[in-house]
Design a protein around this nucleic acid. Sequence first.
DNA 1: GGTAGCGTTGAATCGTTGA
DNA 2: ATCAACGATTCAACGCTAC
Lengths: 376, 376
Amino acid sequence: MAAVLPLADLRQQGRPGTWLNTIIKGDCVAALEALPDRSVDAIFADPPYNLQLGGTLHRPDQSLVDAVDDEWDQFASFQAYDAFTRAWLLACRRVLKPNGTIWVIGSYHNIFRVGAMLQDLNFWLLNDIVWRKTNPMPNFKGRRFQNAHETMIWASRDAKAKSYTFNYEALKASNDDVQMRSDWLFPICSGGERLKGEDGKKVHPTQKPEALLARVIMASTKPGDVILDPFFGTGTTGAVAKRLGRNFVGIEREQDYIDAASERIAAVEPLGKAELTVMTGKKAEPRVAFNTLVESGLVKPGQVLTDDKRRWSAIIRADGTLAAGGDAGSIHRLGAKVQGLDACNGWTFWHYEDGKSLRPIDNLRAVIRNGLAKLD
Amino acid sequence: MAAVLPLADLRQQGRPGTWLNTIIKGDCVAALEALPDRSVDAIFADPPYNLQLGGTLHRPDQSLVDAVDDEWDQFASFQAYDAFTRAWLLACRRVLKPNGTIWVIGSYHNIFRVGAMLQDLNFWLLNDIVWRKTNPMPNFKGRRFQNAHETMIWASRDAKAKSYTFNYEALKASNDDVQMRSDWLFPICSGGERLKGEDGKKVHPTQKPEALLARVIMASTKPGDVILDPFFGTGTTGAVAKRLGRNFVGIEREQDYIDAASERIAAVEPLGKAELTVMTGKKAEPRVAFNTLVESGLVKPGQVLTDDKRRWSAIIRADGTLAAGGDAGSIHRLGAKVQGLDACNGWTFWHYEDGKSLRPIDNLRAVIRNGLAKLD
DNA sequence: GGTAGCGTTGAATCGTTGA
DNA sequence: ATCAACGATTCAACGCTAC
């Protein structure tokens, strides 16, 4: 069983890390305030939606729709909901690391208030993501469009935080090599994944699918990161985080949910290191100066480089700069200069002769990075 | 050319209807305040998105992205944007009929503020609709998810307004007989539809596709309705409204946009009455009492009806009621009674024998409605 | 006359490092 | 703190040109 940590205990010990991979039992804001500053890498929050249901709803066959009418989803007014939202978002902001990001999921009942509050509290919106449901509940009365999606907001702690985690290359590779869009298609949580009590009834009214959390976590965290879920419920965030080699912290008030989550997470087997390795792009690779190619003999002073269509050419000088016409400079500056542009990636612009064909000098950088033998 | 109405003229005349199918030139809020109370059936609004762009953005090939940096999209702060939003939404609310609805489109930069303000002003959110773009602009730097959608909010004037227009059956019929979802897929406006100036450059930076407006208008208005667009731009709302047999009112400040819209709308040919007939659901169809079936001889007193599995049966009485066991009543009440339910649709529950098969008596009601020959 | 190829473009809050 | 240098990065649709 995943450990459960009563809030009172957390307050007393205060030792760093005792709360890692536990479910803190207590009020959301109070629990957040007992956690240290800047201690989590990412937050996933599925707050109450503030559904405004006017009575009961029946299906066309007269069966009763089991609506979300729990006490925790009742707010007296938008004002009350805003105050609640402000409180938990502020508390989240404090425990978030400067380069951390937060996800909040909601429906049209609450997401506009959440989004506006995020902006008011100086979070910086990165994307709004649409979860399109393959199997949404129909609109039984035929008075509106079928409510077939929910919205997630992804935001960084503030506008200046540029180095948040975003595993762009991995997402692209997993998406047929085109960049991941802001609309995601997943089934709702059902079947074996849906937690049911001994009475056969669902334990939690709004359990989210693990696939959704898996994409969120794979996209915006690294293995070993700490992911906080202030409305833990039955622990989907914790289960997926554990499986994906991340740490979690959950906060939850209801003992029934804690029991279900605890048992559920205990049964999760984490993936191995190899499976968790994230595909990275060139951004993650160590820098190699062009001069290194000259020094290692992969290119030689006096050798001629051209662009891929041989429109421009330049000569390599012994100091690792290029010269063309009266101009000289780095591979980047000279590439920009000859084309009349402000900037240019010299590694992909300049090519060398390899037999009959032209190859970008970027290929030679790869030789250095991989520690391969010199070519000559 | 569609008529252009300077705001000063509108203020002087004040005669009802002079502003129908015109473009009012002037400030959005001032123009709205010159229009009478409760005078429009629907509003489509595409307000400034309040994009906050840092600098210039280049594509991987170093070409410059032509960003939306127009003066009208600049706001000093969220507070300023909220004040602007509040002003035009309040003005819209006054001119909207009590059963009217409003659509607002936006992106994550502004839509959360718009949605929260709609709620604060006592509009009642009916749906949020996601416009998924088939061909969105990529994320060039690989720092976020591709921004592949925009969001529309559909709201009624207030919570009590239950008889707003929603052509549920027509939408369903047009959608392979399944109800229309909240996620719509359309291409962005390009090709021949995109208005270009003599210089070949786009007239308006954010022209919306006509297909999007067509679905909005077909879903939530009736032929002859008045549709207001307070940010008319190049008049997509007007062009589609005219084509679909609706009236429009546009408000726009920029003369260049007005000129383009005016010419564009003048060239639109409205569809004929037959094409515009909206498929209506059973709710709008004339009521047919069960007794009418008895009177017309489609069913006969003494005839036996059963449910589709022959679990229960009842006898038709001459007064148009049913009897079973010791109970009697309407087709609905008796259907509920035998099943032990609170309610039941007798039209679909009770079946009659047609040769070897059972058919719902609803089929016979259709015979009456369509004026078909008696079957016997 | 097709069609392959190349260039253009669309509501975008779009970088990191070291001197 | 500011500045310069490095160098990483795009998808679908439309239209024009060349063959």
